[in-house]
Design a protein around this nucleic acid. Structure first.
Lengths: 225, 225
DNA sequence: CCCCCGCGTTATCGTCGATAACACGGGGGT
DNA sequence: ACCCCCGTGTTATCGACGATAACGCGGGGG
């Protein structure tokens, strides 16, 4: 990317760019600020429900959806390249912390809101960046929901393993057998039997689907592209 | 960073750089490859214990420590800027997945090893990057441990199956699934499928501990690959 | 002994980031 | 009405950078 190219695209000459933004880094910084403004605008416009946990979940999903909808802008936003953009990032952290404060006021938080906010934000950016920059390694966007619920379960108070133990044990049994299905070929299973057996194993639901939040909620059209 | 500067620092002229690396991106790519080699070398040299969970925890901590020790190299490594480096990243994921496979073979994993590996890797890079690039927002390194345990708690099977360190997680998984095969009919299995599925389950022998690779073999196998 | 090719050099081109100097044009004080 | 003045945009230019062409040297094989 060259300043000449963006000036030609904007229909002006170079000096106006340097008058407006100082230098090239200034232009990049202004762009990043603009992306942060869009992000924060979406965050501030999010309607709040009476259940802070629901809002926090929606906040995570909207974060991931924003990243997937604007991958280049998002990588710029969280990229460490340019001069500091701490203000917008701190504001995002503050918005998240407000929801966490509400959760803490209800006695449902196990850790300090600041700590919970840092856990959520860092994990969320990590998942989003991975989904964007390594789609070959992370082909499934449901990863976002999995990590989200993992972090939320860790910061929430209450029973350590609230999920039903029956479905939990079943899921563990499925993964155990899936891990060892290779050792079962060619004895006692033929290759075809192992293939079908593995296929059936993946069809076993993990637990009662009504209990846990649906991961099928589409992340796509949560933001305006 | 200019090619002239690195050539002067190396005591050579520009054309040797272009002969060796093609162009500037080639030099950057070679640097990134070198960093990945260091990372993978550390990962491969890590001694494996008899407890895969301990190894996975140590792997997370060494990942974070590597990032904190070489922040610039790490940001280069995970930065999406240059041409693809999928091979080293895939190898890192494979190394992690080997530990997770061992965990799954012991019946202690709730999700598929691939899924668990992606959850761990994405969250770990997210935490490491946050600690590096936003030290003002993430002043405490213990964030890494918190997120680590959150992810691990989410992928680990519940406190069920406390015994069976010796090896019969497979048999336990078989009995678990046998007990719940009735709940799987008529969905997602037809009666005939459930019948065959149950029959196959009974054909699975108890795991033979000698069949599993020993940690020493594991290590040798890794270093040769 | 000479040839040849891997390796390094000097010299140069086009482009880029950044700035100096200048040109236009409309609003406010007298 | 006049002129001053500054905000805005232009042309011209500089130094540095990425990249390449052309050349030179030196040691191993026919």
């Amino acid at each position: 990317m060259s300043t000449r190219a963006v000036c030609e695209a904007a229909g002006v000459q170079q000096p106006v760019l340097y008058r407006l933004f100082g230098d090239k880094d200034g232009l990049l910084a202004a762009t990043v600020d603009h992306v942060w403004d869009q992000y924060l605008g979406m965050k501030r416009a999010a309607a709040k429900s009476e259940d802070p946990l629901r809002d926090i979940r929606a906040g995570w999903d909207s974060h991931t959806a924003f990243a997937l909808a604007h991958p280049h802008a998002y990588t710029l936003m969280v990229s460490p390249g340019l001069r500091a953009v701490p203000e917008a990032a701190a504001e995002a952290m503050r918005i998240l912390r407000e929801d966490l404060d509400r959760l803490a006021a209800q006695g449902r938080l196990r850790v300090a809101p600041e700590t919970a906010a840092r856990m959520i934000m860092s994990a969320n950016t990590g998942v989003s960046l991975s989904l964007i920059t390594r789609p070959g390694l992370y082909p499934d966007t449901s990863l976002s929901t999995l990590v989200r619920d993992a972090i939320h379960a860790a910061i929430l108070a209450g029973p350590a393993t609230p999920a039903d133990p029956a479905g939990d044990a079943r899921a563990a049994a499925v993964t155990t057998l899936l891990a060892s299905v290779g050792d079962l070929t060619p004895e006692p299973f033929t290759a075809a039997e192992s293939a079908l057996f593995g296929e059936w194993l993946t069809r076993i639901p993990a637990a009662d689907p009504a209990e846990r939040p649906s991961p099928a909620e589409d992340l796509k059209d949560r933001t305006t592209s």
